[in-house]
Amino acid sequence: MEKFKTSKETRISLTELMLPAHSNFGGKIHGGYILNLMDQIAFACASKHSRSYCVTASVNKVDFLNPIEVGELVTLKASINYTGRTSMVVGVRVESENITTGELKHCNSSYFTMVAKDANGKNIPIPGLLLTDKQGVRRFARSIQRKNESTLRSSRFTSSKFQVEEYLEALKTENVSLQLT
C-alpha cells in the first residue's frame, strides 16, 4: 500500500443527462436521485484512494442551491479532502449545465465520510493524503473542523447531558409553544 496519495490521483467526475424519469412531481430532478449519484461517486473516489471496498459512514449537510431541469447535463466531481486511519472525507460538488445556453449552475456540495473495509467487513488502514497546495490544506483543515463540530454537537444533545434551561430563552423567538410538565 502506498503511504500517501495526492487528491489529484483519485479525483473523479461523472456527467449524466437528466431524463424525465429522474424528475419529481414538480418537474425538477428529484433530490433523492442526485443524492444517490453523489453517494456513488463518493464510493468510487474513496475506493480508488484506498484500493478497497468502502461504505458511507456519514453525509455532512446537503443544501440544494439550485434546481436541476430535465434535459440538463449534471456533472459530479469528487476528491479526497481528509484522511484518517481508516476513513476519508470525500468532497462532492454537483453542477448542472443547460446544453442549449451553456449556463452552468452550482447545485450543491457535500462531504461524505467513507470507511475502507476488508473482505470480512473490518476497517482497514488507508493511504494518507499528500497535500501539495494551500487549497488542499484548507480542505483538510475544514474537514477537521467539521469533524470536531459534529462530535461536540452529538455529545451536547445526548439525553443525559442536555440542559433544557439553556435553550428555553432561545425558543421564545421560534414557532413553537411550550407546555412542559
Score class of each variant (00 low, 15 high):
residue 97 E to F: 09
residue 13 S to M: 09
residue 140 F to Y: 15
residue 152 L to K: 12
residue 177 S to V: 13
residue 15 T to N: 09
residue 17 L to G: 00
residue 95 E to F: 13
residue 81 N to W: 14
residue 34 I to Y: 05
residue 87 S to Y: 13
residue 33 Y to V: 05
residue 91 G to N: 13
residue 169 E to P: 01
residue 150 S to F: 12
residue 32 G to C: 05
residue 63 D to M: 13
residue 113 T to H: 09
residue 162 F to I: 05
residue 133 D to F: 04
residue 66 N to T: 11
residue 83 T to E: 14
residue 109 S to I: 01
residue 169 E to S: 07
residue 169 E to C: 00
residue 52 S to A: 15
residue 92 V to N: 06
residue 34 I to P: 01
residue 61 K to R: 15
residue 93 R to W: 07
residue 13 S to I: 00
residue 9 E to W: 07
residue 132 T to R: 07
residue 25 F to H: 09
residue 132 T to E: 15
residue 48 K to G: 00
residue 142 R to Q: 08
residue 159 S to W: 12
residue 72 E to A: 04
residue 54 C to S: 08
residue 176 V to A: 05
residue 41 I to V: 06
residue 128 G to F: 05
residue 178 L to A: 11
residue 40 Q to C: 10
residue 58 S to P: 10
residue 109 S to C: 04
residue 34 I to Q: 02
residue 95 E to W: 04
residue 150 S to N: 09
residue 108 N to W: 00
residue 145 Q to R: 14
residue 126 I to W: 08
residue 68 I to K: 07
residue 139 R to V: 00
residue 114 M to N: 00
residue 27 G to Y: 08
residue 28 K to Y: 14
residue 17 L to N: 14
residue 136 G to E: 12
residue 47 S to V: 01
residue 101 T to W: 02
residue 90 V to Y: 06
residue 112 F to E: 01
residue 51 R to N: 15
residue 151 T to S: 06
residue 46 A to T: 01
residue 45 C to T: 10
residue 66 N to A: 13
residue 10 T to E: 02
residue 129 L to W: 11
residue 145 Q to F: 08
residue 17 L to E: 05
residue 26 G to Y: 07
residue 111 Y to E: 11
residue 69 E to A: 15
residue 105 K to D: 06
residue 137 V to K: 09
residue 147 K to L: 11
residue 158 T to E: 11
residue 98 N to I: 08
residue 110 S to Y: 01
residue 76 L to C: 14
residue 123 N to S: 15
residue 124 I to A: 00
residue 19 L to Y: 15
residue 74 V to L: 14
residue 124 I to L: 05
residue 154 S to D: 03
residue 104 L to E: 02
residue 116 A to T: 05
residue 14 L to N: 11
residue 130 L to I: 00
residue 62 V to S: 09
residue 64 F to M: 04
